[in-house]
Simulated assay, not measured.
Amino acid sequence: MSDCNKTDFTNPSTFILLGIPGLEAAHVWISIPFCTMYAIAVLGNFTILFIVKMELSLHGPMYYFLCMLAVTDLVLSTSTVPKTLSIFWFNSREIDFSACLTQMYFIHCFLVMESGIFVAMALDRYVAICHPLRHSTILTNSVVAKIGLAVVLRGIMLVLPYPFLARQWPYYRTYIIPHTYCEHIAVVKLACADTRVSSYYGLFMVFCVRGLDMIFIAVSYIQILRAIFSLPTKDARLKTLGTCSSHLCAILAFYIPVIFSSLTHRFGHNVPLHFHVLIANVYLLVPPMLHPIIYGVRTKQIRDRLLRLFTHKGM
């Protein structure tokens, strides 16, 4: 705190991103899977958007939510990977203070949006399976648009305190962030002020926002499973369960690394720093890459449309 008392500024002009501390010698090699996953994520999610736009039969609630998920994944990966690769390839470590806060905001805002989209998709599956005859009347285009707007506004509003709080604090003279991007807790740790309010708010976001989302999803799927196992035949049960499998895989791919990273960052004091950073990159890279693969493989309508597209080009 003595350094803070001697300084006469409230925030720095730039931060220095170290990349993955302890693995600097391997940055070029680490960049290969990072770049590959990013390329797959961009190609896969744009393919999902293109197929849903071109195929009129896919213009329904489930696929509208899937398009929202694809856009969110594109923003999440693009907000971090290009800067990360510039660190790995060109040693371009500086990031402007305002750009750092903007990156922090986009990452956490779209993570909250993605969580909300999974809740909306769980609602869609619940209505489709538990109330199939009323699906089209309950989830109309107007209702889907309102749900989408609520998801977006929730993300925008809930994450606003992150950059506003971070901008108010004075910082130590050393502006080095041991990370590949401006992760919230990593920036908070550089402030020479009482940052408990920010830490508590971060925990609130993990446990109350994402926690409530997971509870809602779990309750929806309990009702869905009850409806599935009440079906008269095994074939009917398997077919209905298959319509939910892609969504369940996508949920697991998103929530497991996010929760694990959040908890280890706050409570895993004995975990090596490079492991923290790698996990934090995994939950921003792997889900955007896996989601289009999961939905492309597990969703018959998308798979068939994709096969027709390539078959037609082949001819």
Rank of each mutant, 00 (worst) to 15 (best):
S115T: 14
L153A: 12
V81W: 10
D96G: 09
V143L: 15
F97H: 03
I117G: 01
V75N: 04
F88S: 00
T174H: 10
F164R: 01
V71E: 08
C100T: 02
T102P: 04
W169R: 12
C67N: 10
S115D: 12
F164Q: 01
N141K: 14
A128V: 08
I156D: 07
I138Q: 07
H108G: 06
S79M: 08
D124P: 08
I87A: 02
F110Y: 15
L165Y: 11
L153D: 00
G155R: 05
T78S: 15
H108V: 02
L85A: 11
F110P: 14
M157R: 01
P178F: 07
V144N: 06
A166H: 12
D124K: 02
T140L: 09
Y172T: 12
S86T: 11
L123E: 03
M104Y: 03
Y162A: 02
V151D: 03
I107P: 03
I87H: 06
C109D: 02
S142F: 15
I156F: 07
H131F: 12
G116L: 04
V71R: 10
D124H: 12
H135T: 09
F118M: 15
F97W: 02
C109I: 02
I138P: 02
A70Y: 05
F118V: 01
M157D: 00
L85E: 11
Y126T: 13
L111Q: 13
T137I: 05
A150M: 09
M157L: 15
I107K: 05
G148M: 00
P82G: 05
T137S: 13
F110D: 13
D96A: 07
Q168F: 02
W169V: 09
C100N: 06
S92V: 04
M157K: 01
F97E: 03
L139Y: 13
W89Y: 14
T102R: 08
M121S: 10
T78W: 05
P161C: 09
P170I: 10
H135E: 13
L76P: 08
G155S: 06
A70Q: 04
M113I: 15
M121V: 02
Q103N: 13
A120C: 11
S77E: 05
Y171A: 04
P163T: 06
S142G: 13
N141C: 11
H108R: 01
P82K: 07
I177R: 07
K83V: 09
Q168R: 10
T84Q: 10
R167M: 05
A99L: 07
I129L: 06
F110T: 13
T137M: 07
Y175C: 14
H179D: 15
S98E: 01
S77V: 10
S115P: 08
S136N: 13
F97K: 01
D73S: 13
F118C: 11
I176T: 14
R134Y: 04
F118H: 14
C67I: 02
T84N: 06
V119Y: 04
R173P: 01
L69S: 15
R93G: 10
A120D: 07
A99I: 04
I177H: 02
K146M: 08
F110K: 13
L158E: 10
A166P: 05
I87L: 01
G155Y: 05
L74H: 06
S98V: 02
